Lab assay of single mutants.
Amino acid sequence: KLLSSIEQACDICRLKKLKCSKEKPKCAKCLKNNWECRYSPKTKRSPLTRAHLTEVESRLERLE
């Protein structure tokens, strides 16, 4: 599967780190437990900047 097509777990399953069936409108866990089942939009991760990478590398060197 391509990364862009990976389905996201519902908010509660993601928060509780449960295996989500990803069914809509309610996944199996939410249906069974009568929880409100919501699927928040995916958040875009910002790409690493060179400055951040350099900072992490220098912190790693100090720890070694």
Rank of each mutant, 00 (worst) to 15 (best):
K17N: 07
H52E: 08
L48Y: 09
C37D: 08
L31C: 12
R14Q: 04
Q8V: 05
C27E: 03
L60E: 01
T43W: 02
S40L: 04
K44V: 15
C20H: 02
S46Y: 04
E23R: 08
S5T: 09
A51D: 04
S40Y: 07
K22D: 04
T49P: 01
E23D: 13
S5A: 11
H52F: 08
P47E: 07
N34L: 13
K29I: 06
V56Y: 09
K17W: 06
H52N: 06
T49G: 00
C10T: 04
K26Y: 12
L18M: 15
E57A: 02
T49K: 00
E55L: 10
S5N: 10
V56H: 07
C13R: 05
K24Y: 15
K42P: 15
E64A: 04
L3Q: 10
A28H: 14
S40A: 08
C30W: 08
Q8H: 11
I6F: 13
E57R: 08
T43S: 10
A9Y: 01
R50V: 08
E7C: 12
S4I: 14
N34W: 04
K44Q: 15
E23T: 14
L48C: 03
E55V: 09
R62A: 14
K19L: 07
V56L: 10
E57T: 03
N34D: 12
K17T: 03
E64N: 07
E36V: 13
R14A: 07
K42V: 06
R38P: 05
E36S: 14
K29S: 06
Q8M: 10
A9T: 04
K22T: 00
K22W: 04
T49N: 01
K19N: 07
R45P: 03
K44P: 14
R38L: 15
R59H: 08
L60Y: 10
K26E: 10
S46E: 02
C20L: 08
K29P: 04
L53E: 10
H52C: 05
I6S: 12
D11E: 03
R62E: 03
E36A: 13
S58D: 11
P25S: 10
P41N: 05
Q8L: 11
A9C: 03
L3Y: 13
E7Y: 06
Y39F: 09
E55Q: 11
I12F: 15
E36D: 15
E7P: 10
W35Q: 14
P41E: 08
K44W: 08
K44S: 06
K26W: 12
T54N: 09
C30L: 00
E57M: 03
S46P: 10
K24P: 07
S58I: 15
A28E: 13
Y39N: 03
S5W: 04
K19P: 05
L48S: 03
T43L: 13
T54S: 12
I6Q: 14
R62T: 12
K42A: 10
L53G: 02
K16P: 00
L15N: 11
S4K: 08
Y39C: 02
D11G: 01
E55A: 13
C37F: 06
S40E: 05
S58V: 13
T49L: 04
E55W: 13
S40G: 08
C10F: 01
K32R: 15
E55Y: 14
S4L: 13
L18A: 15
K29M: 05
A28G: 11
P41Y: 05
K1L: 12
L63K: 01
K16G: 00
E36P: 14
W35D: 09
L31M: 14
L31D: 14
A28C: 10
E64L: 09
L3C: 14
V56T: 08
A9K: 02
L3F: 14
T49R: 00
N33W: 02
S21C: 01
L15E: 13
I12D: 10
S4T: 11
L53A: 03
S5D: 15
V56A: 03
E64I: 10
K16W: 05
C20S: 05
C13E: 06
T54L: 07
R59A: 09
R45V: 00
P41L: 03
R62S: 09
K1C: 15
T49C: 06
K1F: 14
R45Q: 09
R62P: 09
I12G: 12
P47Y: 06
L60A: 12
L2A: 11
R45Y: 01
E7K: 09
S46T: 11
S21Y: 01
C10M: 07
C27M: 02
P47N: 01
L15Q: 10
D11W: 04
P47T: 00
C27W: 01
K16Y: 00
